[in-house]
Amino acid sequence: MKVLLIEDDALIGQNIVKSLKISQFTVDWFRDGESGLQALHHSEYSLLLLDINLPGLSGFDVLKNLRRDNTKLPILILSARDRLDDRVGGLNEGADDYLIKPFHLDELLARMHALIRRQHSTATNILKYGSLSLDSQKHTVIFNDQPIDLSGKEFAILYALLENPDAVLSRKKLEAKIYDWNDEIGSNSIQVFIHHLRKKLGEDAIRNIRGVGYKIGTL
């Protein structure tokens, strides 16, 4: 899953990015609201982590811009502002949750997973398809009752395909979902990851729709 973090505090941002990457999230981090908004226009994210006290465009301004555009992206505010009117104001402006700094990273991860579950109208972190079960929080895959060892990018591609098994995802769309802005993307990297997934799950696990992209196949 790919997450956008807009946070101007260097130490907090570094700790969040490190924790999320350990938990197999792909993270884009920006330290001002304007840059974060631009990123949202050029990439797809599963969740936005949004600080309020940002230089230039405030977090509330970012929030208003997004909700005015009717985006349904889940938004979790991270703020040291602990007054009731700040919390209520953030939620009324369209945030889905509000977490007060300082917070424990385990709580942040739990709230993130809860928002993503809500977005997909599911009560668990588990996606099931055929004989395969994927747990997005534990980062595990079970296929034919056996655990399957996947790399971070292999897992991210499989998750993207399972999110909407009827959809066909182009190479560019898959790249946008699994790479952050600092990654160097090889011209055939998606094809290589797909090849590895097929070796582990079977040749029919992922279909290639010629000229369009990839979709989940038979599992």
Rank of each mutant, 00 (worst) to 15 (best):
L84K: 15
D85N: 13
L73K: 01
P55M: 07
L78M: 13
F60R: 08
A80C: 11
L73I: 14
A80W: 04
P74R: 01
L91D: 02
K64S: 09
L76S: 07
D69R: 15
N92T: 13
F60L: 12
D86Q: 04
K72W: 02
L66G: 05
L63T: 11
R67A: 12
L57H: 05
T71G: 03
L91S: 02
R87P: 02
I77T: 01
L63W: 07
I75G: 04
L91A: 15
L78S: 01
D82Y: 14
G89F: 05
R83Y: 01
P55W: 08
D85H: 05
T71D: 05
D61F: 03
L73F: 04
L66S: 10
S58D: 08
G89R: 14
G89K: 12
L91K: 01
T71L: 11
R81I: 03
L84V: 15
N65K: 06
S58C: 10
L54S: 12
L84D: 14
D82T: 12
D82M: 03
F60C: 07
V62F: 10
R83T: 12
D85E: 12
K72C: 08
N92D: 12
R87C: 04
L54C: 05
R68D: 10
D61K: 10
A80H: 13
L66Q: 13
R81L: 11
P55F: 05
N70Y: 09
D82R: 15
G90W: 02
N65Y: 10
L66M: 15
N65I: 04
N70F: 07
A80F: 01
G56V: 11
T71H: 11
L78V: 01
S79Y: 03
D82Q: 06
D61T: 08
D69F: 06
V62Y: 09
I77C: 04
L76K: 04
L78G: 03
N70M: 09
L63N: 09
R87H: 00
S58M: 12
L78H: 08
